[in-house]
Amino acid sequence: MELNEILSELNLLFRRVLANKAVELKMDTTAKDVDGWDSLNHMFLISSIEEHYKIRFALKEIIKLKNVEDMCRIVQSKINS
């Protein structure tokens, strides 16, 4: 799966989880750029991504996430492996 495909899927997922239709994710988007993406909703987003792709992040992977691109890359590496 290409990174851009994952990005657009994550975008839909974020809109649903955050109940915010205005979310427009880019590769360099970080939590502070998105209304409602705070530390309280962060893990909710992570577990939604895990459910969607049937994958599981390790704690260290979650901690190292800095932006949307990191998320996309981890998802890509997990679903391709």
Partner: peptide, 25 residues
């Protein structure tokens, strides 16, 4: 406390859904 307590605890309990967040809080 957010980085070193809240984040690891809530990550650990993320499959509890909202209860996981409240537990971590």
């Amino acid at each position: 406390v957010t980085d070193y307590i809240y984040t690891p605890v809530s990550a650990n309990k993320r499959h509890w859904g909202k209860f996981g967040t409240i537990y971590a809080l």
